[in-house]
Design a protein around this nucleic acid. Structure first.
Lengths: 204, 204
DNA sequence: CCCGGATATATCGCTACGATATGTCTCATG
DNA sequence: CATGAGACATATCGTAGCGATATATCCGGG
């Protein structure tokens, strides 16, 4: 019953879903996508790719890089099985969808699901975080005092972060609901631009 | 040269530093301490304790729980070696101190170091995050457009979170500096109370 | 021409996780 | 008083993912 470890797998499926790619690029895209922190290591990526080859979710095709070149590049692409699996994972709602690591990837590919699913995942994630908050708060009541200054500050900051996360999710949920009413219009909450004055000098 | 994996070790050393404890309690305290998210698993804790026994950082003493009881409880306490090691780890500044996971624990035990160390760790952590921010920003310039709505929103939220983290660190650094001047006075920034009107009704 | 840095693939050892097993103690409720 | 739920307590197993590292090619600038 999908015991985790699908994190990377889903990410790879999602990226290959929009065209073939080779390992190195896969990693770059992934790290940009979830760039905020954690970087995906080759030590995770390549074994996963191997595994996905074994289970026929993807297939490789050693394409020559450009002209005559000894440089080899293994380009991966989805099989029909892989395509189906991606579909299955994306429509699956439940714990696996809103676990810490998984959620980010699910969210990144939200564009490929319908609103009903999106709402359920967002709400699931939110209650998960709220449960956590409640648990910590409850434990704080029991323990009370005796914690030192810095530990307390860390505590406070952690709680605040989670609360912010909850607010963010709430906004997203509202945005989805709005979108449900004003049908088809682009969400007003979701930022579309971000066109900062980029230098655009091809290369130094 | 301390290849990571000291995360839990430092935490255990720090907790035992303020008195003997048994595994179960160690876990509870730790999860409360870093409660925000990740919970420490027994699958991590017990093997670590075993390892620390082997390296003589801690020692166990099977104390009878209360009176005549078949219930066994293994109480761990620091050895002199362990005490020294804690000291060493806490005064060590460098990458290991401000890595994602390690930082939280280092911070939680800040009360046991002097300000010079604290400042260096906080500043180290801050530049780490700023580097990350710069890297993401730079990559965004290169890639630009072609990312879908949700991926972009995830991006934006991630960046915002890290920026908040940086601000938090800056405040802490300022607080430390203030404290340096007004010598010995308790930091005005760090919250001390949090005495919410708790119901205290033993159990429903 | 050669060196450094980006591109590209790959493996190894290990940390920590999540699930799970097993047993004991406490206490409320029937 | 028995019984069973739930906290307390210790422990192990399989495995995902990390970080470091190795190897090799390509390309541009000094």
């Amino acid at each position: 019953m999908a015991r985790r470890g699908e994190t990377i797998e889903l990410a790879v499926l999602g990226l290959l879903h929009e065209g073939p790619m080779h390992g190195y690029e896969l990693r770059k895209r992934l790290n940009l996508m979830l760039g905020w922190g954690r970087v995906l290591s080759y030590g995770s990526l390549y074994p996963t790719l191997k595994k996905m080859l074994r289970t026929h979710l993807i297939e490789e095709s050693t394409a020559p890089v450009a002209s005559v070149s000894k440089r080899h590049r293994i380009v991966y692409q989805l099989t029909d099985v892989g395509d189906l699996e991606f579909e299955r994972l994306m429509t699956e709602v439940g714990p696996t969808a809103w676990e810490d690591d998984n959620f980010g990837i699910r969210f990144a590919f939200f564009g490929r699901t319908d609103m009903e699913i999106r709402l359920r995942v967002l709400e699931g994630r939110r209650s998960r975080l709220q449960e956590r908050l409640a648990r910590v708060q409850q434990q704080l009541e029991m323990t009370q005092a005796e914690v030192d200054q810095y530990a307390a500050e860390l505590q406070r900051h952690g709680v605040e972060s989670v609360e912010r996360e909850v607010r963010w999710l709430s906004e997203l949920i509202d945005a989805e609901r709005d979108r449900a009413h004003t049908q088809g219009a682009v969400s007003p909450r979701l930022h579309t631009d971000q066109s900062s004055p980029v230098t655009r000098g091809e290369e130094p």
